[in-house]
Amino acid sequence: MNGEPLRILLVEDNADHAELVKRNLADSQVANRLFHVEDGEAALDFLYQRGAFADPAQFPRPHLMLLDLRLPRVDGLEVLKEVKSSPALLSLPVVVLTTSEAERDVARAYAYHANSYLTKPVDFGQFAALLKDLGFYWLAWNRRPW
């Protein structure tokens, strides 16, 4: 087990969905710290610690990014592409968390080296279970690079 709480960057334009993620992660027994941005541009700014997110103390490097695909301004896939083509960021595990079940999206996400692809379940119970498992996996089982 890792001592440090799991820092998660949630990139989600839908405030309701973000709230649901937040609540379910909080309910899980996983020590975590959630950062939420609403579009791709902000996500990249966060990751590069620039603009509004320039302060590393306030906005430390996340251990995991939960990335929605349909985002205003910079699309989720664009963000993914940028992360995976940046030597500084490519080791960041990126879990795509989206409403889309389209195969094309799944294929493209993996083509851009997404580490995992999750579809938001419509059922609340499943949604809760998914996030619980997710947190547990990445905090308890997964060995992270930093």
């Binding site: 839908n14 309701d16 969905h17 938001k120 419509v122 059922d123 609340f124 949604f127």
Partner: peptide
């Protein structure tokens, strides 16, 4: 499909909550 599903997730999610 995406945008119609999105409110459904919200509704079901918060209803569950």
């Amino acid at each position: 499909s995406h945008d119609l599903k999105s409110p459904l997730i919200t509704i079901k999610g918060f209803a569950g909550s």
